[in-house]
Design a protein around this nucleic acid. Structure first.
Lengths: 281, 281
DNA sequence: TGTGCTTACGCTGCTCGTAACAATG
DNA sequence: CATTGTTACGAGCAGCGTAAGCACA
């Protein structure tokens, strides 16, 4: 049986043209290379080199062997890489979400149910989510409406209700509830990367200038220190607490409420059956 | 560096489903397999098996590894085979001839000039010879006329003249020369596998029934013991001797004389330059 | 004299098979 | 208790590097 190491040696020799230089590049002694190449010839029962007393070079067969050797070594490297990649995929659950709250919530659920799996999640637009689910880049995607087709199943697993968070001296702060239209105009603080909510805000409040914040702590500071209105939600308040010195006013519009669905490929149902059962409750 | 042997072991395990059976099939002890597979996992830094205390089976990654392993092992086998084949070609000179005399002659010339090469030669029809030369199955081909095109060069290297070999009591035995037409009719002895001569005889002597002989010794016996006419040639007489008790009568027709050409691919001219030089003289 | 390949030699450590062990059905 | 996989152990040898040898420029 020939050895991959011998093929590596052969390739190194071809690159460095002398056994001594190749040996240096391989960090082995030069006699090792001599023997390695002799053994390769023995095992192939072929002569690969033309030898003079102090010079050795590949013959035609040897040059052909280089081609094969390169291919085989390349294939073994590929094997390693692809197995690694496959294994990584086996041990990670990838979630794509349309919004941060359900992303957060599902991450927690998944990480508790599969404590030895790696979880990666990100917020993306709906088209990307659906494409990614179909192409297996996502294990689960979270959508704000039900998906039901031949290959995809979706189950509702969480609701979110938006509220206005207003300083007490805001003209509408005393109301029991407000519509989006009533609040449209002026400026509002808004977190970035809130997925589909962003689109909703742009559409329902076209006259408002949203002051987008990348940093959550800056966002919270501005809420405390400014009189700018902003949004919050039942989920946000449950986990991050209620904004201080703010009136929390429900939004009447139906668009300020979302039901989130966890979607997965039907073919994977059996794999995740028990997890999905716990999620459903 | 992973070893090809490990991949072979992996494949064997997949085929035999238990380490013990695989070990038997590989003619090694079972602990060797245990360690071989452990080492493979170590080197890949991956888990390929699901283990219970006395049962081991491939996991998903392991199954994928099987695919890669098979491919790689297959490639190394291919490498061996193709290198062998290439090497064989390097050391054999393959000759295709249109007739036996020049085949014989060229074989001798080649074997003397390249004493360490293997020579294979055969008689085939012209189309096959030309195809074979272009496709590199033949190193040289021998043709009864000059070939000259972009890729092929031909040099004349031998002539052959046919004679009738007649019993002394044959009506034409006393003549100084005879034409093919004069002799046409009746029966004649003929060796098989004489290449293009065969076609010539059929065309120029359509009324003659040729008694084809496969075996050369039978052919010579029949010449001695029968009164059947046959052909001989200057080359044949020079190497096999003059048929006993026979009148050797020259054939007047131009078709009974041939000039043979040794043809080769122009691209190989340099490789065979010195040989072709000696052949030319 | 320096460079390069091969061979000789002694040592290290790897890998083999046997054997003991543990678990399972 | 027969089968299967893992671990322990000791022996043998395979492959390493150093060193010596030989050819060439």
């Amino acid at each position: 049986m020939i050895e991959l190491e011998q093929l590596v040696h052969l390739i190194a020799f071809n690159e460095h043209k002398t056994l001594s230089n190749a040996a240096k590049s391989l960090h082995i002694s030069q006699p090792v290379l001599t023997r390695s190449m002799q053994k390769l010839e023995d095992e192939l029962d072929l002569i690969l080199f033309e030898r003079t007393k102090n010079r050795i070079s590949l013959n035609a067969t040897g040059l052909l062997a280089i081609e094969h050797a390169k291919r085989i070594i390349n294939d073994t490297d590929n094997m390693k890489r692809q197995l690694k990649e496959f294994d990584r995929k086996q041990h990670t659950i990838s979630i794509g979400s349309c919004a941060p709250a359900p992303q957060n919530y599902l991450n927690q659920k998944v990480s508790r149910f599969y404590p030895d799996k790696t979880i990666s999640s990100e917020i993306k637009d709906m088209e990307i989510l659906l494409k990614g689910l179909k192409e297996n880049t996502y294990t689960f995607i979270i959508t704000p409406y039900e998906i039901d087709n031949e290959t995809i199943e979706s189950i509702p697993f969480m609701e979110e209700q938006l509220f206005f968070s207003l300083p007490y001296d805001h003209p509408l702060a005393k109301k029991k509830s407000i519509s989006l239209k009533e609040m449209d105009g002026g400026r509002m603080l808004l977190m970035s990367n809130i997925g589909f909510w962003n689109q909703m805000h742009q559409e329902t409040m076209p006259h408002t200038k949203f002051l987008i914040q990348q940093d959550r702590s800056v966002f919270y500071d501005l809420i405390e220190l400014s009189s700018l209105p902003s949004f919050t939600s039942d989920y946000s308040m449950k986990y991050d607490g209620i904004p201080p010195n703010r009136a929390i006013v429900p939004i009447t519009d139906q668009q300020a409420h979302a039901m989130f669905y966890c979607c997965y490929l039907k073919e994977k149902e059996s794999t995740f059956k028990s997890f999905l059962y716990t999620l459903n409750k």
